[in-house]
Each structure stands twice: as structure tokens, then as C-alpha cells.
């Protein structure tokens, strides 16, 4: 598989009014796991669609007038040109209202925002993606990117953890990803009858992996903070340098443009300095409860 690389930093023109959303239409709703669905969104204005680009790890603000806004990571292929996938879990009023919408409905979208995953830093290296639960959604664009230029990367491993086998996200794509040269492993906290795969937490999968070149291994992690903490510990124990470890963090995102103050994590703004951080840049602040 080969195709042109994603054009370097997608920086759309800064809007006059950063609060202003574009109208998007729901093209398709794909049910994923319980309470999670992927919304394929298309811009109504074709000139915006023509210029819209994002990088893996970035997020959009989705807006339901009268209800509110919610930050949703983009789970689409970075080469998407007509519609963009957003995998959303029902968690509060905005996502509840979203869950009641049908294809054809319109809503607002502004973005993309935030720092992306360091795809360039993965070139020529072993790459390990570790996802917990719905944390696979923000990593999926990286998988698309790695697969589009598979020969640029050495061993690519994707470790996916979920609560149950039914909670594994995007299971229909696993076979394709494996066939395209990804070592994909799954594990669940709780087995269901008939499950013959791994049972246990996702850091254990990392513990078991052979890491022939830890110095030349890049680790991208996304999931609950506790899961990320133990995954990073496992990687560090195995000799992966901190500057090769990246994770996606989260705080209450409201304006997404560094103007509202909500998403501060230590001295950083998650919307501007995150959500993807190099581990050593955020480690001292992740350790502090209530920061």
C-alpha cells in the first residue's frame, strides 16, 4: 500500500470568530459498541470541505444548537476528503442528543484543534500503539497513516484493551489491519463465554512483548489515565526512552482555542499544548491528584 503523505501541518486560516461553527450533515451513523457510534460528518459548504484537513490525534468541537458543544477526537482517515468519522460515546447531554439524531440532520463543527500524534517521529522505528476502551478512536487515524506508508515504519504493534470482548472497538477492521502488516493484539478485563483470547489488562500485553530495540521504539498511548500510567511504566522498565512515549490526555475542553481557561493541566492548556503530549512534558503534572 502506498500513497502520498499527509501534507505537513494542516493549519487552516485562523477564523475571524473562533467560536463560529461550520454546518455539517450526518451522512451515516455506524453503531460500534454499546453506547458508542461513529458519525460520518460532511460539510454542507463544499469550499470548506475542499480545504479541511486534520492530523491524527486532533479533535473537533461538535455543536448542537440549544444543547451545547463537545470535544470529539477525529477517528477518520487523515486522507478523508468528503466525510469525516467521529466515534462518540454517549456520556452527557450533548452526546445524548447526538444519539437521537438521524442521518441528514445538521449540526455545527469547528476545528481541527490540538497537537497531533508524532507520526514523523515514528518513521524508521518500531511503533507500538496502546489503546484502552474508546481510546482506540483517536489512534485510528495513526493506524490509517501507518498503513498508507507501511514501508516507512518497522514493526507496528497495536495493543487494544477493553472491558469485555463486546467492548473492543472497530473489531471489523482488525483482520484488514493484520493483513496489512500490523501485529494487533487484544485483551479484555472480563471474558465472556466463548472468548478464547487474552484476559487481563493491556499493560500485561506490553510486558509480554519482545522489544528488540527499545531505544528505537515509539509508544503512543490513549486510554484512561491509570491505564496510561501503568503502560508507560511498563515501557520505561523495558528501556523505552521517555522522549519516545506520547499520550493523549484530557480535561474539560470548552473553547478549544486557549481562551476560556477550562482545560488547564499544570501549566499547559490541553486544547493548545495537548491533547497529545510527549510523556516527559506532562509527567510531573499527571502525578498530582486534582490538578
Amino acid at each position: 500500500m502506498n500513497s502520498s503523505p499527509v501534507t505537513a501541518p494542516a493549519r487552516p486560516p485562523v477564523p475571524e470568530n473562533p467560536w463560529l461553527s461550520h454546518t455539517v450533515r450526518i451522512e451515516q451513523i455506524v453503531p460500534e459498541i454499546a453506547e458508542v457510534a461513529t458519525y460520518e460528518l460532511a460539510f454542507v459548504d463544499s469550499t470548506i470541505a475542499a480545504t479541511y484537513q486534520f492530523q491524527p490525534g486532533q479533535f473537533n468541537m461538535l455543536y448542537l444548537p440549544g444543547v451545547g458543544e463537545v470535544a470529539i477526537s477525529i477517528s477518520a482517515d487523515p486522507r478523508s476528503r468528503e466525510r469525516w468519522a467521529h466515534t462518540i460515546r454517549v456520556a452527557g447531554s450533548v452526546t445524548q442528543s447526538l444519539a437521537r439524531l438521524q442521518p441528514g440532520a445538521t449540526l455545527g463543527l469547528r476545528g481541527p484543534y490540538g497537537n497531533p500524534w508524532p507520526v514523523a517521529a515514528c518513521e524508521g522505528r518500531d511503533v507500538i500503539l496502546v489503546a484502552g476502551g474508546i481510546g482506540l478512536a483517536p489512534l485510528r487515524p495513526v493506524i490509517y497513516e501507518l498503513l498508507a506508508n507501511r514501508n516507512r515504519y518497522r514493526k507496528v504493534t497495536v495493543l487494544v484493551g477493553a472491558r469485555t470482548p463486546e467492548g473492543l472497538l472497530y473489531p471489523g477492521q482488525y483482520a484488514d489491519w493484520k493483513a496489512a502488516g500490523i501485529d494487533l493484539q487484544t485483551t479484555v478485563d472480563r471474558a465472556s463465554p466463548g472468548w478464547l483470547g487474552n484476559v487481563g489488562v493491556v499493560p500485561q500485553l506490553l510486558d509480554r512483548m519482545a522489544l528488540p530495540a527499545p531505544q528505537e521504539t515509539v509508544l503512543l498511548v490513549c486510554g484512561p489515565e491509570v491505564m496510561m500510567h501503568f503502560t508507560v511504566k511498563s515501557a520505561q522498565r523495558r528501556g523505552v526512552p521517555v522522549e519516545n512515549i506520547w499520550l493523549s490526555s484530557e480535561r474539560n475542553m470548552q473553547c478549544a482555542v486557549r481562551l476560556c481557561g477550562h482545560c488547564q493541566l499544570g501549566p499547559t492548556f490541553v486544547c493548545k499544548d495537548g491533547p497529545v503530549y510527549r510523556f516527559d512534558q506532562i509527567a510531573p503534572f499527571l502525578k498530582v491528584e486534582g490538578l
Binding site: 470568530n17 467560536w19 461553527s21 454546518t23 455543536y63 444548537p65 445538521t106 455545527g108
Partner: peptide, 16 residues
């Protein structure tokens, strides 16, 4: 007021 949204025949329209 940072933005407004109006429901139109073509769906929601957002404006400044």
C-alpha cells in the same frame, strides 16, 4: 454573545 445559530430549511446556520 459569541455566536448565534438559526434553524433554516437547509439545517442549522451559524453566524457571528
Amino acid at each position: 454573545t459569541v455566536a448565534v445559530a438559526d434553524r433554516t430549511a437547509a439545517g442549522w446556520q451559524m453566524s457571528t
